[in-house]
Design a binder for these strands. Structure first.
Lengths: 201, 201
DNA sequence: AGTTAATGACACTTCACGGTATCATTAAGA
DNA sequence: TCTTAATGATACCGTGAAGTGTCATTAACT
């Protein structure tokens, strides 16, 4: 039915893209063990043989799909000018359907793909926390009027972690559990705004 | 090899316990799609036939295993006398291997078990947040000295959600991603103590 | 031009798993 | 006591999935 033979260079590139697109979709819906390469191949308009010559086995397909999707999501997270902008953008992007499905997949397979989970954390939450830390002064205590709190001065990274945990709070947990819809940009910005005063007084 | 015939009442009860024990272990390690009832049956010293007469199908076994394990974890979370005690106990229990494996399983299968995810959230995070809210005064602003912050007075539940998100912060995310070991009670208590001043000044 | 690499088509193997059937056996229930 | 329910053992069915082999075909590479 389709054309055979060795493909042109861009045909090959588009094929690889289609394979990963189909893999991302299938893994997001059915999980790793629940997805089949037959179904991914059919959905990509490609034969299973092609997938095996490209990736070798199913685990490599999963790995490549997670990596590419993570790159795509990170590319959409532009750095804002203010902390408020950055936080709002972060909340919006990380609560999107794509980001939640990716996060869920990596958590689900973390016991069987520990290296993938580590890379995901470094490039994802770890990177975001470092980004937030650049906006937080290093010496600001969390409650200047309270001497006890002033004694426990936290470095910027620790407070950036706390801020990140607040930005991805219960709303994010409910998203992972598929209980809430994705928030609008306005809702994301409002949530971000409600978190900031807790960390930067 | 083993004794046949109808079992005594407590034999039956122990059998059901063994089945769920084996199911919890297998689902925690291999996920839902990656687990097999053959392996669970063998591990429980029971035939597959028994599991089917008890639960009907694989999904029901998963449901029952999650429910029982959640009950068990919740039973170990005793209410402390002070907010500090409750928070420390919560952090310790919810970062345990068993709680993390359960949380991970429910997240992984949330798209395919939406009702289970909803029940999990109500009885788990939802319940814990309500517990925390009882220790938080309703009218306390998060930064009394700042008039802008004082204008955004949050009800106790919203601040309890923020506290819960802080208690299950980056450490919990890294636990879900299988990147960190379970914290000791001392570490859990220290983490809880570091969260409280952000929410209750 | 000649060689090589990558593909589609397709059949094939191997294996595991969900679920069912049967039957002897033994305790529970009436 | 007699019926019934629940089990172990065991075999089985149907399905689907991972991964491979082969071959004609066609573009890339030299």
């Amino acid at each position: 039915m389709a054309k055979r033979g060795r493909p042109t260079a861009d045909e090959r590139a588009r094929r690889l893209t289609r394979i990963l697109d189909a893999a991302v979709d299938s893994f997001a819906v059915n999980g790793f063990a629940g997805s089949s390469l037959d179904e991914i191949a059919a959905s990509a308009g490609v034969t299973k043989r092609t997938i095996y010559t490209d990736y070798g086995d199913k685990a490599a397909v999963f790995d490549a799909a997670v990596e590419r999707e993570h790159d795509r999501i990170r590319a959409s997270a532009i750095e804002g000018s203010s902390l408020q902008d950055v936080a709002a953008e972060l909340v919006f992007v990380l609560h999107s359907d794509a980001a939640i499905a990716l996060h869920r997949s990596v958590i689900a397979e973390a016991p069987r793909f520990p290296e993938l989970a580590r890379r995901f954390y470094e490039a994802g939450p770890g990177h975001s926390i470092a980004l937030l830390a650049r906006y937080l002064p290093d010496d600001a205590p969390e409650a200047p009027t309270d001497p006890a709190a002033a004694a426990s001065v936290a470095p910027a990274t620790a407070r950036a972690e706390a801020l990140y945990a607040l930005l991805l709070g219960e709303r994010h947990r409910r998203r992972l559990l598929a209980l809430d819809p994705a928030p609008s940009p306005a809702v994301a910005a409002a949530h971000a705004a409600s978190c900031l005063p807790l960390v930067i007084p």
